[in-house]
Design a protein around this nucleic acid. Structure first.
Lengths: 229, 229
DNA sequence: AATGATCGTCACATACATGTCACAAAAGGC
DNA sequence: GCCTTTTGTGACATGTATGTGACGATCATT
């Protein structure tokens, strides 16, 4: 699964830099330009997965960029999030009419924007992410929502499935209970750390198989890891 | 891999102490000050990896500290999380404009704050979590939490692991028992110096291997060092 | 309303790691 | 060589982390 690509069109250098920084930290490849015309070029050539479009930009106006992106077949399907100033309700409405998928009013917190972008990406990219992951004798098919071990189909609960998937995306790596809560339950969940233990147990039970060793490794005082057995 | 360093600027002593305690427990080195001007000094001299900045502090105001941190080249890149009172939306917005990376409104749960900080740390310093260290015939993988010697996987207890890791980050260098306590156990631990000896012994036992010499050197009346055999 | 699946939490059992001590062994100083 | 200081080592009580079964709550389905 390749890195998601993001086109940022924003002419406030400080804000642009901040967002660039934050999104790169989130694992996005960020293309950035303050200029509307250049944005159209970049969109055509670089095929971003998502566009963040400021309303007030140099060159071609935001709404015009939005319109043209929608008109060009190559970019017609790309999700667009508009960044508008507070109170510019009319602009916002016109933006949505023109084909933007979402908007956010300034000032906004980077976290909120990132949350919205991730939400859209999750919605957009399942097809892209629909590959199989294989670690050791385990195979996980995200789209089919199925796990097999040595060919045997395993029955896992939803949480165990997500937990295993996360482990399989980072095989061999040790994660603390806190990290696992962040990754599998969500950053803002308010769950006991020990709950992770219980789900680890359920996962172990779910993937156990005659004549196969437990691939889940306990690292005392550190967390758990999935071994590429 | 050195410990992540965190600068806490908070003038409520109770909250400061609580956060200090919790973050130290998470493995952070915490520098703490209630004063804005001192915070700037500390930031310049101690090069923290992340700054937690309360809005209402003595001396220079929070936003001013934020601005100056961003202006100084040495600290311009350091992530800043602002702590604001609930309802101070305007302050929050100005903080973000000034270059803060995130904010959290009081009251907040320490766990939530820790989660956000770790999320940022993980993204900012991937190298922190990323690599293998090799010294002589020893190889340590911090992410997988594994040590091998000549290919053989070694089983070490948590403390021995941290001790070895510290040694491997400074190969050949001699450390006193006190220094080792600070580095491996934490600055504020209240442990007998001789305890280090015992763990050195356990480390030696843990990494011993047929046909290989002991790489841990005792320097009489000075301390211990790890030799690049 | 009833069923069943899943979830988060708890209590208890177990396994392991820890810090300290007492004594043995070794290393210097003279 | 003798004495003092420093380090090595095994044992032990204690504390801490993890494994595990059970329970009530919640939610979707019927």
């Amino acid at each position: 699964m390749k890195q998601p690509r993001l086109l940022l069109v924003e002419d406030d250098p400080a804000l642009a830099e901040l967002l660039e920084f934050r999104f790169q930290a989130e694992g996005y490849t960020v293309l950035s330009t303050p200029d509307g015309d250049e944005a159209l070029l970049l969109a055509a050539e670089e095929a971003p997965d998502l566009v963040l479009l400021d309303w007030m930009i140099e060159g071609t106006s935001g709404i015009e960029v939005c319109r043209r992106l929608r008109r060009d077949k190559a970019t017609a399907h790309v999700p667009i999030i508009m960044l508008t100033a507070r109170g510019a309700e009319d602009d916002m409405i016109r933006g949505l009419e023109t084909g933007a998928d979402d908007y956010i009013t300034k000032p906004f917190s980077p976290r909120e924007l990132i949350a919205r972008v991730s939400a859209i990406m999750r919605r957009i990219r399942p097809a892209l992410a629909g590959e199989q992951i294989t670690v050791g004798d385990l195979t996980l098919d995200a789209t089919a929502h199925k796990v097999t071990r040595k060919g045997t189909i395993l029955a896992l609960g939803p949480t165990e499935f997500r937990l295993l998937k996360f482990f399989m995306e980072h095989p061999g790596r040790v994660f603390s209970r806190g990290q696992l809560l962040d990754a599998v339950w969500g950053t803002d969940s308010d769950i006991e750390l020990r709950t992770v233990d219980v789900h680890i147990r359920r996962l172990r039970k779910g993937i156990e198989l005659e004549g196969a060793v437990d691939p889940v490794r306990t690292v005392r005082s550190a967390g758990y890891a999935l071994e590429a057995v």
